[in-house]
Write a protein that binds this DNA or RNA. Structure first.
Lengths: 328, 328
DNA sequence: ATGAAAGCGCTAACAA
DNA sequence: TTGTTAGCGCTTTCAT
């Protein structure tokens, strides 16, 4: 029918007829059946997005970035949390491929062999996000967690800290966390500093868990003088706990977080953190997919968006980003 | 083909044949084409979810609740932010109906006439969430924001506050916020207290905006002695700002937040807040949909999940929920 | 318990 | 510029 054209390729229909069709459609509240159109054209306009979890708000800005680009371009987002489970990811990828999606987004660069095979053979554009890899399934947008670990360790060593710890959750199954620890420990070794001060927990991340991690760390190693937390919530908990115990930050202990969430700039003392480009990652990921759909040339399959260490009071830096902006 | 049956109604196929089919499918990495099956059976196993925004983490636990129920039951979530725009919602509903979804989830109870008509005529199960209404499109799961406003105002009046303010964002387009304000003001009027101390902003909510709102409020009304913030981030900002200015909480000013996010229990002083059942709302919403799909009887179309005012130090209550749980 | 026929509502490729 | 034909990969329904 010409109706289909009027919707999908309006310029191929005479203005007059198009007018008539569109207005009739409006009258009848007609909307195209996306399922049928998906079947006919081999592939539904959906993009499955596999993220580890929604519990942790870190993934929200990323999603937000996707939502700002994909739906306006006509693609719906199929949201699926994997709970950090690589086997669950495999199941989900397999099931989601049943939608014949035009593209797919995966978190991290660590996947089961079958996931990789499935996706490679399928051949649709795939973006692996959050981390960096030299061997992407297809495309890759992220930054190096390994480098984050290195940079924070260098930073602590550089300000003269001697007993430098890492504290985090899911330190075994969250591969990004593992990489940060790896980089972190390597640098400590290079500096001949102790590198086994790793405090782990498998509970979900939270402010109160940050308190607990700090408490336990100090119980086992009372003279720790710097801690890199796996995220800002944990670090904030540690700051609250220090306040409660009268531990001086940064004099007694320096604290750094990860992700530079808003609380980092606002808490007292303000928290040194690593700013990560999550919103931008979402937008760029979406744009790369769209470009590929249009068959445009993609200069690079791998994009390192970098990160930035933001020094604040918790490591002896100056207050940063605190203050009252004008009310609109 | 019998293959279809082997997947969808395994019990109608002889065990032996079923075995053979399933193993062959596994070998070939075959997955059913959901699009084709959706077309043939009239309706894709997707549930569009319209939420106002992802910027604000309040919607995340709700989504999380949905994700814990819907995907395991075979339904994918189509996530679509409306940015609090009722016209955008209308467009999205119309477009999403093109998926012939089996059900649909809407935030709030305020919708355009067309949205209501479209949905009612379509006849699929619809759940309106977050707020309560006496006239749902179909089903309704939430709690009364109006009552929240009333209860907090009563509470402030009850502890002897005289100049009680409300501070929030998007106070015009976020209807839940509007309702809280309405209830809040009604009670203040009943108590013959001033009820025009409303501080508004249209910027997105953030800790630093909380600082700004408090600052501006105190500039205009220096003797305000209680403030109900539209959420905990804003309230936390206000607490940080008070610390900076040496304003005593709760002696000089009492502060309450909304949603009882984790920071409320952890900040110093701890923050009185209204605990809202967001995760549970997600789960219950999903379960109600599933029950309806199965044709089961739903005793009630409207579920009031309630809320709870959690008193903490910021209004003169005792510390609450602070402390270090054991490390796992 | 299994198979055959028909068609879901579109879009692709082609013809007019 | 418009209409026609066929078929996307399933699930129905009905027959075996």
């Amino acid at each position: 029918m010409t109706v289909s054209r009027a919707f999908n390729k309006p310029d191929l229909v005479s203005p007059e007829l198009r007018e008539r069709i569109l207005s009739a459609a409006a009258q009848l509240n007609y909307v195209q059946n996306r399922v049928a159109s998906g079947l006919a054209s081999g592939g539904a306009p959906v993009i499955p997005v596999l993220i580890p979890t929604l519990h942790h708000s870190v993934y929200v800005p990323f999603l937000d970035g996707l939502c700002s680009v994909l739906p306006p371009a006509g693609f719906e987002i199929l949201l699926s949390p994997t709970e950090y489970l690589i086997d669950r990811e495999e199941e989900l990828v397999s099931a989601l491929l049943g939608w014949n999606p035009k593209g797919l987004i995966l978190s991290g660069t660590e996947h089961s062999r079958k996931t990789r095979t499935l996706l490679k053979r399928n051949g649709i554009p795939v973006v692996e996000v959050m981390d960096l890899t030299s061997d992407p399934i297809d495309m890759n947008v992220g930054f190096s967690h390994y480098q984050v670990g290195r940079e924070v360790a260098e930073f602590f060593a550089g300000i003269g800290r001697k007993r430098i710890a890492y504290a985090g959750t899911l330190t075994e199954i969250d591969f990004r966390s593992v990489r940060r620890i790896t980089g972190f420990q390597e640098v400590l070794k290079d500096h001949a500093l102790p590198h086994h001060l790793i405090q782990r927990s498998n509970e979900p991340s939270s402010i109160s868990l940050g308190r607990a991690l700090l408490t336990e760390l100090l119980r086992q190693h009372p003279n720790v003088d710097a801690v890199f937390f796996a995220n800002d919530d944990l670090a904030a908990g540690a700051i609250f706990e220090c306040a409660k115990r009268g531990i001086k930050i940064p004099d007694d202990i320096a604290i750094a977080g990860f992700n530079d969430q808003e609380i980092a700039a606002e808490i007292q003392p303000s928290l040194t953190s690593v700013s990560t480009p999550r919103l931008k990652m979402g937008r760029l990921t979406a744009e790369k997919l769209l470009r590929r759909f249009r068959g445009e040339y993609e200069p690079s399959n791998s994009e390192d968006l970098g990160f930035e260490l933001i020094e604040r009071e918790s490591t002896g830096g100056r207050a940063h980003g605190v203050g009252s902006p004008p009310v609109a």
